[in-house]
Design a protein around this nucleic acid. Structure first.
Length: 443
RNA sequence: GGAGGAGUGGCCGAGUGGUUUAAGGCAGCGGUCUUGAAAACCGCAGGCUCCGUAAGGUGCCCGGGGGUUCGAAUCCCUCCUCCUCCGCCA
């Protein structure tokens, strides 16, 4: 969420910045928002003055003879003041609701350094690591995995539906090995504190990081047991606005849980760095026909997530640090990859600046995203209200997150880059102690 | 799922319609005293919002929301959370 005062006072400036994301984003910033901000302020100024007078009068009444005509006169007068205060408060709330409604739909402004562009075609390559490995007959990973007998997509569809996977034998073991390897690397060498969080989150949590309200279609919402649903319907009939808030969702990324961990708090020491292994769930309704085969795009996948919370002035340095940590995973695994920077038009909702790490997939003949590292500045911190004490003043922190890495996609890269002429797959040296073998062979 | 109880500042804990600007204590910070420390004493201490260049000030905040009243921590409604017991359960 952007700062409403700042938006109201610098409307043209913000609109120009937002135009770099595209015309639709810029159009979200209309003059109505600024007028609501002013209207709210007017209600507060007038209301505060009235309440001040009301308070003094009430104090006087406390000392008066409750049966005197003066008391009755004062009471009648204050009755009118009270009505006016209530009306002002109602108007103030309307303004605030309008402001929030508008702001929740507005994405973060792109950083000055964020390159111009409208789509992923325009993302400049920042650096490339390693060489394309010599794979004589490249194959897509689903063919490799199915031939080895370690991936089963048909049976996954049978038990759960499309866009799920079953991992067998060495693949299941590789998944575990990768998770442990990645968490160990970040926890032991990069200074992150390990954290394990629930996979199910409340609506307010998704709102804090910006997934809701705008991207409700991208997440899975849970339906509770019949009796609870009935109780909920009863509650909303009674006029309570809590029914909606009682909803639970499957988290699409641990960024959600970990970033919101300190929501509403004032932090004593920064920076904070967490590494979390967590399952992620995405509905993928907007990607029909895209990556339908294989492990690339599933409804459920594992991810090791890095989250950093820091002082505002440090966040750009922290972003570089974060990308470096994520990239180290691929370097240790010897997987050829490149780092691109997202152009303004390709930027995620909460991000001001983002680096994507793209790993080389020989079977596909393309680089594919395996990590996305973003600086969200104070956008999420404002929504979630995460602050720190800075010399007597409370300020919003900056939040950053990045995958370190997407586990399934890492497995894809290992299978495709490590494919040997005999159909077996070479396991990266760094992973051998975790996996227990230097080769994946047919089962 | 059933029955009961409880939510007050960083923590403990008074307070059942009007000098309560929330008593008191502990922890915290600053100071006096001391060679140093402790003790004692004095003082300062929260969040949000709005006005203001600032200094400073207004208003709001006793789990959340709504209501009654001239006036609510206190009365009413509602939701949430936690605790205890029973049942079920990996």
């Amino acid at each position: 969420m952007l700062d409403p005062r700042h938006v109201a006072d610098h409307l043209d400036e913000i609109r120009a910045s937002m135009a770099r994301r595209g015309p639709a984003a810029a159009a979200l910033l209309d003059d109505a928002l600024a007028s609501h901000v002013r209207g709210r302020r007017e209600c507060i100024v007038r209301g505060d003055a009235l309440r001040h007078a009301q308070k003094e009068s009430n104090a006087a009444m406390a000392r008066m003879d409750k049966k005197s005509p003066e008391f009755a006169a004062r009471r009648d007068e204050l009755r009118r003041t009270s009505d006016e205060v209530k009306e002002l408060e109602a108007r103030q709330k309307e303004h605030e609701a309008a402001i929030e409604l508008a702001l929740l739909a507005i994405p973060n402004t792109p950083h000055e350094a964020c390159p111009p562009g409208t789509s992923s075609e325009d993302n400049p390559v920042v650096r490339t690591w390693g060489e394309k490995p010599d794979v004589p007959t490249p194959k897509p990973h689903w063919d490799i995995g199915t031939a080895l007998g370690i991936l089963d997509f048909d049976r996954a569809t049978k038990i759960s539906g499309p866009r799920f996977a079953v991992l067998l034998g060495q693949a299941a073991r590789l998944e575990r090995a990768l998770i442990t390897f990645m968490v160990d690397l970040h926890a032991r060498e990069h200074g992150y504190r390990e954290i394990w969080v629930p996979a199910i989150v409340a609506r307010r949590t998704l709102r804090g990081t910006g997934q809701l309200p705008k991207f409700e279609q991208d997440v899975f919402r849970l339906v509770k047991g019949a009796s609870l649903v009935a109780a909920e319907a009863e509650a909303s009939e009674a006029g309570a606005a809590t029914g909606e808030d009682a909803d639970l969702f499957l988290s699409p990324t641990a960024e959600v849980q970990v970033t919101n961990l300190y929501g509403g708090e004032i932090l004593e020491s920064l920076p904070i760095a967490f590494v979390a292994y967590a399952p992620c769930f995405r509905s993928e309704v907007g990607s029909y026909g895209k990556d339908v085969r294989g492990l690339i795009r599933r409804h459920q996948f594992d991810k090791v997530e890095l989250v950093r919370i820091c002082r505002p002035e440090r966040s750009m340095e922290e972003l570089e640090l974060l990308v470096g940590h994520a990239e180290t995973v691929l370097k240790r695994l010897g997987l050829h990859h490149r780092v691109v920077e997202l152009c303004a038009g390709d930027l995620g909702f909460a991000a001001t600046r983002t680096y994507d790490i793209e790993v080389w997939l020989p079977g596909e003949g393309a680089y594919r995203e395996i990590s996305s590292c973003s600086n969200c500045t104070d956008f999420q911190a404002r929504r979630a209200s995460i602050r720190f004490r800075d010399d007597k003043r409370n300020r919003l922190v900056h939040t950053l997150n990045g995958s370190g890495l997407a586990v399934g996609r890492t497995m894809v890269a290992i299978l495709e880059q490590g494919l040997q002429p005999d159909g077996s797959v070479r396991v990266p040296d760094a992973l051998v102690p975790y996996f227990g073998s230097d080769r994946i062979v047919a089962e």
